[in-house]
Nucleic acid binder design. Sequence first.
DNA 1: CTGAAAGCGCTTACAG
DNA 2: CTGAAAGCGCTTACAG
Lengths: 346, 346
Amino acid sequence: MKQRREQQAKPGPRSRPAVTVRDIAREAGVSASTVSRIINGTVKVSNGLKASVEAAIAKHDFRPHAAARGLALGRTFTIGVLSQAIDSPFYAEGLRGVERRLLAAGYAALFMSGNWNVADEERCMRRFIDHGVDGIIMFSGCLANAAVKDFAKRCPVVVTGRDLPGRHTYSLPIKDRLGATLAMRHLIGLGHRHIAFIAGSESHPDALERLAGYLEALQEARIPFDPRLVMRGDWQAQGGLIATTELLEAGRPFSAVFCVNDQTAYGAYLALFRRGLKVPDDVSVVGFDDLPSSSYTLPPLTSVRQSVRVLGERAAEAILALVCGRRPQVESPPVELVVRASTRQL
Amino acid sequence: MKQRREQQAKPGPRSRPAVTVRDIAREAGVSASTVSRIINGTVKVSNGLKASVEAAIAKHDFRPHAAARGLALGRTFTIGVLSQAIDSPFYAEGLRGVERRLLAAGYAALFMSGNWNVADEERCMRRFIDHGVDGIIMFSGCLANAAVKDFAKRCPVVVTGRDLPGRHTYSLPIKDRLGATLAMRHLIGLGHRHIAFIAGSESHPDALERLAGYLEALQEARIPFDPRLVMRGDWQAQGGLIATTELLEAGRPFSAVFCVNDQTAYGAYLALFRRGLKVPDDVSVVGFDDLPSSSYTLPPLTSVRQSVRVLGERAAEAILALVCGRRPQVESPPVELVVRASTRQL
DNA sequence: CTGAAAGCGCTTACAG
DNA sequence: CTGAAAGCGCTTACAG
């Protein structure tokens, strides 16, 4: 706490003498209660009063003080949204979905980035609580389930990419494994048998599941698994570039590469390009997530799509339900393969 | 107001009976004032009391109620951040910078998207006020200066991409025109004389300035301006694709295209690719903003760089100063041209 | 150094 | 339908 205080900017002269409900009440010749009722539409108010109060409100462009309202109401109409990095195109998509839905309901989103590590995620969650959010949306994240449940005791949380039952909790699993098999079956169906896989960061659950899908599809097609065709990435283009470069240098032949996500595929594209290899003529590439920019890569990327935007919308829908004491009734969006120009028949 | 109410999710049972300062006070055998003082480090408190209060706080994992605090303090430690679209890689970069700086100061960011139109921007600004933010950061935006100043009466605002003096206002201009001339001089220096320009959406100030830079550089080099080489885009890849396609169909010869931003260039890349034209062999392309992904396009894109991330950090720095009643002392980051592989000597 | 009291601005039972 | 009063949980002069 002490530390926190030191970090905070100094108070400074507080401003906003502003106008209050009392001012409006006085001006309109009514009580503050009446003003409040009119603003909130809580109770019927006679038309005469209503008109004069509304006039006064308009005249001063009065807006109720948020904190006061929050205190009286016990809710702030704010939702905390945890992603791993606000500048990742993947999460940005999701945030967009969240925003749209939340705004329509009169809520605002407080966002913070977990940076793919537990400590930061934990810090964000505390911050959310400290800021009095009414609910929290977590996009995946590496926080242990138990920790999530702990936070859920203070305010409801919906989390994607997991299966986490609970009274104040709702989860929206991501179909990672299924998506990965879709990608692989496509490649296998095209005649590819030497298929490399550029993985995500080690312990991430989504990464593990996508790898599992890769393995499963191989087995299903009775293609022997060659560990030398699996390289570790970092979910980013850079990791894809490095991993693919290493793969190329290792000299192990392959005709296709399946990337744990689209950004990794962008890196793979560049590695291939530098070697003078063409996609898809020399090697086919498939990504995962179908980011908007994947329609614009050269060539446009074949990718597994489970709309993150829709996922975000549903997550928002769910948290709104939870906040209002209802049980959410939403599902994860469907997964499908979007075939573009980065894959070809062998 | 009525409308707003209808949109809001129904209240639902409010939860969080939670523990309050009084509970902590009682448990530690002190007054609420003392608890508050210890939490805030406002005043010296004897060690004995401090220890027992801290023990009680830890025991219950007590966190002060945000709204109550906000009401008493007159500040919420929340900053509204307006961008045009949270899922635009350009703004995402900026938000990242904002986030980093704000978090370090104990503030949280409320984000909303203006969608490149005045009505939405206005709505966002009102929302920010309604949510009681302590300050607002506007990433460019099309709101009239007068309107911005109006909002600044209620809470300080820092705005990028403009020059807007004022007591409760701080601006961080973007060197659009200079950046554009940098790009153009590079192209001209390479021997290009028929240089197309894919513009941004019409009235956007950044768009206008970049166009002005294009014109200025042309004039400087005594290259006649050909309006048929200017196409309107929408700041997005799609607009770049459409505009470039039209340009190609118009049949007006050109050897280079300068795009109002990188995303537009991505669209241009695809249009060229579809026509079987190679970058930079057949046409050179330059973007603006130097998004992280521009290192990964094929070929990597030459672009004007004025770090949006740093811009975000500085904007955050500035709003923090304003909120504390200090005058900000920050400047826009420098502009430079990053030459990659998308341009070549004619 | 510490406590009792008042106040931040709104909402909402409780009367009428 | 409307008002006076109490209360939301915290902070901060004001006394001591």
